[in-house]
Nucleic acid binder design. Sequence first.
DNA 1: ACAGAGTACTCTGTTTTTCAGAGTTACACA
DNA 2: TGTGTAACTCTGAAAAACAGAGTACTCTGT
Lengths: 102, 102
Amino acid sequence: MADFDYRTLDELIHSRIRLAVVSILSAVEFADFRFLREKTGATDGNLGAHIGKLENAGYVSAEKLFVERKPVTRYRLTPEGKAAFQAYVIRLGEMVRLEDAS
Amino acid sequence: MADFDYRTLDELIHSRIRLAVVSILSAVEFADFRFLREKTGATDGNLGAHIGKLENAGYVSAEKLFVERKPVTRYRLTPEGKAAFQAYVIRLGEMVRLEDAS
DNA sequence: ACAGAGTACTCTGTTTTTCAGAGTTACACA
DNA sequence: TGTGTAACTCTGAAAAACAGAGTACTCTGT
């Protein structure tokens, strides 16, 4: 039988907001703050705090620039972030047997 | 693009311990307390509290009996619990694109 | 009837996390 | 140098997670 130890699910990714952020970043190569805020529906303070955790963990990197005279921060997954997300998804799949639901 | 609003993920299921419990119950028809505790690795007090939340939500039902002279509580998913879990898994799949990882 | 044993909680208190919103910083451009 | 926009940082409140102690329950043996 599969392993269901709850501690084997990366708690840094297993948060609804952070999971949404990482999922988006895994799909789009890079995304800016406004985009992430709109897609997740989070308030900007809250979103900033969650992204901060992902940056501290080395899962996400940020790049600041100006586009059309306006400040923009672009985020992308680091290789570590990609690996962690992939591991998380695989682990999750083992746990919930997602393939059965499709 | 898919919806990434973090509030669309059932927060009652999206907890590492409760997710483990519900996943197990979705696979085995019923399970007793000891079994759940061993599989999840949770302490019994903590596990009891999480199961309590699932019961209050109507996702899980309990049945007490004695087996080999020892008290046993058997838990199973209610129809509501099954539906909620299935919805959760589908939602999760949309979010993380789990099918890509296999 | 009562004591002992085993299980499944319930309760308590601590730690951690989440969240919203206000306030602040930073930089480009006029 | 002042203004505008975006991206945070900080604060504080609320909720959740967690471990572990303590308790209640019912069976069984005497």
